[in-house]
Measured scan of single mutants.
Amino acid sequence: MSGNGNAAATAEENSPKMRVIRVGTRKSQLARIQTDSVVATLKASYPGLQFEIIAMSTTGDKILDTALSKIGEKSLFTKELEHALEKNEVDLVVHSLKDLPTVLPPGFTIGAICKRENPHDAVVFHPKFVGKTLETLPEKSVVGTSSLRRAAQLQRKFPHLEFRSIRGNLNTRLRKLDEQQEFSAIILATAGLQRMGWHNRVGQILHPEECMYAVGQGALGVEVRAKDQDILDLVGVLHDPETLLRCIAERAFLRHLEGGCSVPVAVHTAMKDGQLYLTGGVWSLDGSDSIQETMQATIHVPAQHEDGPEDDPQLVGITARNIPRGPQLAAQNLGISLANLLLSKGAKNILDVARQLNDAH
């Protein structure tokens, strides 16, 4: 009898209710805020589980004197976190989706994509230029951005401005803007500013005609071990179906173009009346040469937790077992079709030249 009692006690200790789920994140304040929001949602869904947040620095956090596009290494903000995932030191990792490459290392998958916040870019102005827009900034004003995508589009749109690289986390960039006289304004992701509670610093939100956004911008991705079915089931509740389908289309477009950090590629997606609209573009580094096109596809946005595919093969690095396969494939095909259209119009040449120029500098 006593033996059975011990077995029952052991089973209770090993039951999922007692389990601590370890969540990996970057150390920056924004990353911690984003991770806290994901953990809060998981806690609400699984009140019996405990969650421990483990923060670590990544290569991208450490190399702050070089433009991201020049470092010449993929997975700048993800490699150390993936290493911890691989060694079973954490069970899942919360990322900004735009930091996750469209091809993940073997053994990993994006197990959830959370509801997207505003994906557009924002302009934050130096205190002396508050009330201005990019259009009304004085001639030769210097605007800071760490992104080739932003610089290429904005140089084309605002030729009277000069664009220079600015690195560091959000706090560091804002301090550089406010305390030094080098920059009249800087460009940042609206979602990051909003998550930090800095709505009052948003001086201008850039519309798609001015600057399309990065693939996955404004959404959070939760990376897990691809074979860890328990954790895949656990994080599945975080999937937002519309965000998922938009981001599958965007990531398929980028992957098929073979774009990345070192080339200016941008997108804009919208879901309306059962249609998914995808606009994508590529630019030369100075913005003088560009190709942009829009395509659409009829896609039914499923309700969360309709029964999805059981075999769960990944699409552009994403596993969404609780979302039907048909809409996911339709979104992926839309991204591939748009990429093929741009490639047929000469996108590869623009991107190759951009890559060579970026590598040469």
Rank of each mutant, 00 (worst) to 15 (best):
G236N: 01
S146R: 10
A189D: 00
L177I: 07
A31Q: 00
V93P: 03
H256E: 15
E306F: 15
M56W: 08
L104S: 10
L134C: 07
D312P: 04
L245T: 01
K348V: 00
V235S: 01
T66Y: 06
C247L: 05
F125Y: 15
V215G: 14
A151C: 11
G317M: 15
D228G: 12
R156E: 11
A226P: 07
S75M: 06
H305E: 15
K345D: 05
G168K: 04
L100D: 03
A219G: 09
S184I: 12
G280E: 01
N200A: 12
D36W: 07
H256Y: 08
C114N: 09
S147Y: 01
V124F: 06
Q153C: 07
L85N: 01
P127A: 06
I350F: 12
F183V: 15
L49D: 08
E73V: 10
L193N: 06
L343E: 07
G259L: 12
A214W: 01
A122S: 10
P119T: 12
I186K: 04
A189C: 10
G259D: 11
N118I: 12
V93H: 13
G274V: 12
R195V: 05
K128Y: 09
H300K: 14
V222L: 14
T78F: 00
L257R: 15
G192V: 07
M212G: 14
R251H: 02
F163L: 14
N349T: 13
H239M: 05
S284W: 05
A214N: 06
Q292C: 12
G107L: 09
A297N: 00
S184T: 14
G168N: 04
E179K: 08
L234R: 07
Q314G: 01
I33P: 00
D178S: 10
S37Y: 05
M295L: 13
K157C: 11
I350K: 00
V90T: 07
D121C: 10
S96R: 03
S45R: 11
A191C: 04
V222S: 02
T66D: 04
D99W: 02
T102G: 08
E73D: 15
Q314V: 11
G192E: 08
E242S: 04
Y46L: 08
E210L: 14
A84H: 08
F158E: 03
G326E: 13
R195H: 09
G48H: 06
Q153S: 08
V267K: 08
V353R: 06
Y213V: 02
P105N: 06
K132P: 12
L92P: 02
Y213D: 02
E179P: 06
S288N: 07
L161Q: 12
Q29S: 12
D312N: 15
E139I: 14
I231C: 03
S45T: 13
E310P: 03
D307C: 10
M212L: 14
A354L: 03
V224L: 15
D178R: 03
L244H: 04
K345I: 13
L334R: 00
G221D: 02
T279W: 04
A189N: 03
V94E: 03
Q155H: 12
A185T: 14
D233W: 03
F108S: 04
T66P: 13
D312G: 02
Q296Y: 10
L104C: 09
F129Q: 13
N200K: 14
E135D: 11
G24A: 09
P302K: 05
Q29I: 06
G203E: 03
S69Y: 10
F163W: 13
T35K: 00
P327N: 01
V103S: 10
